[in-house]
């Protein structure tokens, strides 16, 4: 029983990080931008949040957890949005190739994270020495009382604030995309920008905003990893391939935020499953780590076979829009 509860907790812990990335990418892709820079933006968000908290805690004698929380949150959001902005300028304004721009952004973001991770390490006196315990404690604070409820408490209420934020965000996004005028406009931009343009919608503005806000959300995924998951520490490349998992999750969720919620927990569970299966060697572990990707491929095959229009990516995903081009 205890093992199962811990397994669920760990799965959710892994999943939320991916969920942020997937939510950000869903918003971005709904505008027709295929931003493969998500892993990079998550790195950027993570390192920016960590650096903000680290510098604040160093500068102030008795740091306040609340201020550290605010500063790191803001820094992660801004860094992620900056990544989205770089991508938007390249693809929407300069009409560069979306795949190449996205991959470049990932390379850039990962490099940036590792570079400043190294800098912070030397500032703090050596590898593995970075710690922003005060700020991290704010992120790791669990819901009082509710987390003490037997069984339900450990499974549902045993997490930091970002976990609940991720789920709330998914609900808001689902509502926004399906029930509001702006959401309709955004979907139209991603499906058929020429139609949206003819209907008087500012296509470039929607693309920019969706991509930057999507970047900010993805940045929170990095922050979640650094603060709640790792407890305010940094290891170079410790983030691993979670960014790519987020992109896989977008496909798995068929561009629906609510599907991404349970999908992220499933992905998280598959991601750590190898730890709970006894007798696995090093090589067989790697096979288990492939499970989320295999599930994604199966979903891709199934949706392609069913050919349901609603399950397909936005129609103009990855394409430029230029009014005078016919």
């Amino acid at each position: 029983m205890g093992t199962i509860v811990i397994f669920i907790q760990k799965a959710i812990g892994q999943g939320m990080c991916i969920l942020f990335g997937a939510d950000g990418e869903i918003l971005t892709e709904k505008s027709g931008n295929l931003n493969l820079g998500v892993p990079g933006m998550m790195y950027m968000g993570g390192i920016a949040g960590l650096a903000a908290a680290f510098l604040y805690e160093r500068a102030v004698g008795a740091p306040s957890a609340f201020v550290g929380f605010l500063l790191s949150f803001l820094a992660a959001v801004l860094a992620g949005a900056l990544g989205g902005l770089i991508y938007s300028v390249l693809t929407t304004s300069l009409r560069a190739n979306q795949n190449v721009s996205g991959l470049a952004l990932t390379t850039f973001g990962v490099g940036l994270g590792n570079f400043f991770g190294g800098s912070l390490s030397s500032l703090s006196g050596g590898v593995g020495q970075i710690s922003v315990a005060t700020t991290a404690s704010a992120y790791r604070t669990k819901l009082p009382l509710l987390s003490d409820v037997p069984l339900l408490g450990p499974i549902l209420f045993n997490y930091g604030i970002l976990t609940y934020f991720a789920i709330a965000l998914s609900i808001v996004m689902a509502w926004y995309l399906n029930r509001t005028r702006q959401g309709l406009c955004l979907r139209a931009v991603g499906e058929s920008p020429a139609t949206a343009d003819a209907a008087g919608i500012n296509v470039s503005l929607y693309k920019y905003l969706a991509t930057c806000i999507g970047g900010a959300i993805a940045g929170l995924g990095g922050l979640y990893f650094v603060m709640e998951y790792s407890g305010g520490t940094w290891t170079n490349n410790g983030f691993g391939d979670r960014g790519w998992l987020a992109i896989a999750l977008v496909i798995f969720a068929r561009w629906r935020p609510m599907n991404a919620v349970w999908g992220s927990i499933l992905f998280g569970a598959l991601y750590i499953l190898y730890l709970y299966i006894p007798g696995l060697g090093r090589s067989s572990q790697e096979i288990f780590k492939m499970l989320p990707y295999i599930v994604t491929i199966v979903v891709l095959i199934l949706t392609s076979l069913r050919r349901k229009k609603e399950d397909q990516p936005p129609e103009s995903l990855g394409l430029h829009y230029f009014r005078e081009e016919r």
């Binding site: 959401g183 058929s192 949206a196 229009k309």
Partner: peptide, 23 residues
């Protein structure tokens, strides 16, 4: 025609019109 395939007739018709946030 300038229509979005995956949207319904009603959604296409109100696309781009001003109005309350909630559709």
């Amino acid at each position: 025609f300038k229509l979005v395939d995956v949207l319904t007739a009603a959604e296409n018709i109100v696309l781009g019109l001003e109005g309350p946030t909630k559709l």
